[in-house]
């Protein structure tokens, strides 16, 4: 006889065990990372206000919450949350991908795609590209290892020096297009995974995802383009 009641399992493990639960983890961590990507973009756009403003903003991140919080504390809290979110996001992605890949051991002669989008089909490898790019990005601007002339503290100089090398700018543009596609499918999927489809939400879910993704990609890409065009020097 099938039990009529749910098994006596604590809520958290059940959410982590099930595929839906792993998708929820992916959605929640994805939203955290998306909020960072938006905040990071708004900060980066200060580069157009000139070296003084931009460097002051970068230094200001370290004194955020002063004098209540000690120097750098909130920055480190943010870093820990972001690293945790990245790890959980990737862990959940690998878990659901493994389940999906093993769910069809014998493939089709051909399965025609009808409804899916390019963004949806490139989520997995797009995610890998973003992860690889993220490592390069941190080595370039945070650790300065691959920056052509890294000056600690002079963030404006580091950005201009790096983006003047056109292959660096080209890789950045490609990575931001991938981020845009990932955000488009990811954000609309998060609405779906978190069950946010009550009217009127479901009418603007795709539109919101597309607009946010487009603004993010265009906003980030504007910086290397401005450097190469000589607007930022």
């Amino acid at each position: 006889m099938t039990p009529l009641v749910a098994a006596h399992a604590p809520a958290t493990p059940r959410l982590v065990r099930s595929l839906i639960g792993k998708k929820v983890i992916m959605a929640v961590t994805g939203v955290i990372l998306l909020l960072f990507v938006i905040a990071h973009l708004l900060g980066n756009l200060k580069v157009f206000q000139g070296a003084e403003h931009f460097n002051a903003y970068a230094a200001g991140l370290r004194t955020l919450g002063a004098p209540f919080f000690p120097r750098g504390l909130l920055l480190w809290v943010a870093r820990i949350v972001l690293v945790g979110a990245v790890c959980a996001h990737i862990w959940a992605a690998i878990a659901v991908t493994r389940a999906s890949w093993s769910a069809r051991p014998v493939g089709y002669h051909g399965l025609e795609a009808v409804e899916t989008t390019y963004a949806a089909r490139t989520m997995r490898w797009g995610g890998v590209i973003i992860a690889v790019y993220l490592i390069y990005h941190l080595l370039d601007f945070t650790f300065g290892r691959v920056n052509p002339s890294f000056v600690p503290g002079d963030v404006y100089h580091n950005v201009i020096a790096s983006f003047r090398v056109w292959p660096v700018s080209a890789a950045y543009v490609v990575a931001m297009v991938v981020v845009g596609l990932h955000v488009y499918h990811g954000l609309w999927s998060a609405f779906q995974t978190l069950g946010l489809n009550r009217p009127p939400t479901f009418r603007w879910r795709r539109g919101v995802a597309g607009t946010v993704a487009g603004l993010i990609a265009v906003g980030y890409i504007s910086i290397p383009v401005a450097v190469l065009a000589g607007i930022l020097r």
Partner: peptide, 17 residues
Amino acid sequence: VAQMDAEGFGACTNHGE
């Protein structure tokens, strides 16, 4: 949902197919 996972179906990635 527990039975669905136990049967070995894959995870939804919102393709809409």
